[in-house]
């Protein structure tokens, strides 16, 4: 996390006379908090406060109409006996563990493709990026559902290729591929980041490797991947966290119920159903905290293991 910390400012060098140093420092701190105030208030009221509140609620039975009742670990015990909860965990994990790598692989492949051509790269880059802007919108969820329903273009295409007819929307085995395709369709954002990373890779490295007789695949594994590893790591982290939070598309495609047969019951959706549909706020808070802890752990593990495979070139401190 070291790079995430604020870098020391060079300003001190030119601070006024040493006598006034303390007073100036205090004045700086006052100004600092003056400027920081909006964020600080927001952080305390909209982030830190609610986090603590929901930690408390996770140990209560609360339905908004009665005061919260302390029930200890009961919510957590119930969670792990709740088959729909376990289903939502499964659905979300598959989506994250399969969808994210697929999306990133697509992004990297296209980035490599675009990087190897020169002309019109800007055009393709922009065009491929467009889905990332609108992919999470309700409009696209509606379109996606139509494309994959009975008699939709995917059904027609697959039937034409000799597969059994039938839309994907109604088939619990195919809704997950459908959702992953929707995520993959939005490969543009990580692709743009990959492209920016690829530009930083010195061409001389490739040329030297070519001279040494390394093939394309070899060059990819021993130059591109290591040189790109910070970007891969960044994309992986970002996309993993985003994937955990998918909501609008699942909500629209399943009509808010996570169906068919719970196959699109994403964690967020189930949390919404329990918290806001059944008014079981305590239970939903427990769900939220389990997720926060899991995401925290995943992030921690990613940062820890990243030391082994992420190579920072000299200029990054």
């Amino acid at each position: 996390m070291s790079t995430l910390q604020a870098q020391p400012l060079r300003a001190e060098a030119s601070a006024p006379a040493p006598v006034d140093y303390r007073r100036a420092r205090r004045a700086e701190t006052r100004s600092g908090y003056f400027f920081l105030a909006p964020w600080l208030i927001g952080f305390l009221l909209l982030t830190a406060g609610p986090m603590l509140a929901s930690l408390y609620l996770a140990f209560t039975d609360y339905n908004l109409f009665r005061d919260p009742k302390w029930i200890g670990l009961e919510n957590f015990e119930k969670l792990f006996n709740d088959s729909r909860y376990l289903q939502s965990v499964k659905v979300t994990l598959i989506y994250v563990l399969v969808g994210t790598p697929v999306k990133l692989a697509a992004a990297l492949a296209v980035a490599l493709l675009l990087n190897s051509g020169r002309k019109a790269q800007g055009f393709y880059r922009s065009a491929f990026y467009a889905p990332s802007l609108i992919g999470a919108s309700v409009s696209i969820a509606i379109v996606w559902k139509a494309l994959f329903s009975d008699g939709g273009i995917v059904d027609l295409g697959m039937t034409g290729m000799g597969f059994q007819p039938g839309g994907w929307v109604g088939d619990p085995d195919k809704t997950m591929p459908m959702m992953i395709l929707l995520a993959t369709w939005q490969f543009g954002a990580p692709m743009v980041i990959f492209l920016a990373g690829l530009k930083q890779v010195p061409r001389e490295l490739y040329e030297a490797a070519s001279v040494d007789g390394a093939g394309a695949l070899r060059r990819f594994w021993s130059i591109t991947v290591p040189m790109l590893s910070p970007v891969i790591f960044f994309n992986l982290l970002l996309e993993t966290i985003n994937a955990f939070q998918v909501f609008a598309s699942a909500f629209i495609i399943s009509g808010g119920a996570g169906g068919p047969a719970g196959s699109t019951l994403f964690y967020t959706l189930y949390l919404y159903i329990r918290g806001f549909g059944d008014a079981r706020m305590g239970y939903a808070s427990a769900m939220a905290w389990v997720l926060a802890v899991v995401i925290g752990l995943i992030t921690w593990v990613m940062f820890r293991t990243s030391k082994g495979w992420v190579h920072y070139s000299g200029e990054t401190k």
Binding site: L46, T47, G49, P50, M51, A53, S54, L57, L237, I241, F244, Q245, Y267, T268, L271, G275, F276, M281, A284, S285, M287, A288, W289, L291, A292, I295, G296, T299
Partner: peptide, 12 residues
């Protein structure tokens, strides 16, 4: 890195 889920219920 914080999932918004933790916040929506108490905020609400």
């Amino acid at each position: 890195l914080l999932p918004f889920h933790v916040l929506i219920i108490p905020q609400y």
